[in-house]
Design a binder for these strands. Sequence first.
DNA 1: AAGGTGTTCAACCGCAAGAGA
DNA 2: TTCTCTTGCGGTTGAACACCT
Length: 289
Amino acid sequence: MGRAPCCDKASVKRGPWSPEEDEQLRSYVQSHGIGGNWIALPQKAGLNRCGKSCRLRWLNYLRPDIKHGGYTEQEDHIICSLYNSIGSRWSIIASKLPGRTDNDVKNYWNTKLKKKAMGAVQPRAAASAPSQCTSSAMAPALSPASSSVTSSSGDACFAAAATTTTTMYPPPTTPPQQQFIRFDAPPAAAAAASPTDLAPVPPPATVTADGDGGWASDALSLDDVFLGELTAGEPLFPYAELFSGFAGAAPDSKATLELSACYFPNMAEMWAASDHAYAKPQGLCNTLT
DNA sequence: AAGGTGTTCAACCGCAAGAGA
DNA sequence: TTCTCTTGCGGTTGAACACCT
């Protein structure tokens, strides 16, 4: 005895939406709003559709601020970076890309970006390859982090000498400490790297697509994308102490906080979303509606 | 031109979480 | 505290289209 379906699948229309249905839904939502109840909406709007179907159609297609296609390399980079850090949490990733929906980002990743990124980890793309991704963010972990993966699974990215990093785009002009590297090795291995190589993650350098398809600096800091949100406020994220030695920074420094939040994204999220209301990350939760 | 194969993306499915009774 | 209902999410599917032989 499972739960009753949200609607009678036999009596509601399914499949692609017609332009008339789109217009019906759009005009209803624009004049009445969602009304806090998607289940009741189709009846009110005169649509022979399931409420879930209406919601999906509105969120993924009919909303006025939706962008389709035309992903920039900057957006590619954000998606790869976040996928490396948090895995397939598309709603969070999409929330960082104005106008993009989780479904759209997910489709884009699955059909295009994954192949692009996986190409960056092919053996042929070893260190000598001239035109590959410099940032490991474009070379995602084959087993990306997910909400169920322990925080020590090694998908956090560390700024370091990227000896194992492959590249997808032409090398950027950013100095070495501004590049970041996947941390598949245990922390001890990372610690073995020169302290000067261990810049805070996300890199203080900013990235953007330059004219050659590479990544130039000064346009987008990953601080602005995700991790900075996890580290604001007091008291300090308790896992920060574990990383106080890496960057040669104090336990309460921003660098250390961000490094810890990167390495323990799930912990950081839970912590920030708990009773530290002042530190609750804006935009961490999907706020599409 | 026709058939086969690959790609894209809108839509669906089922589960989990949250809210409220 | 428990149950029900709704929403939100990520994974998957399948129709339409593009490309290849």
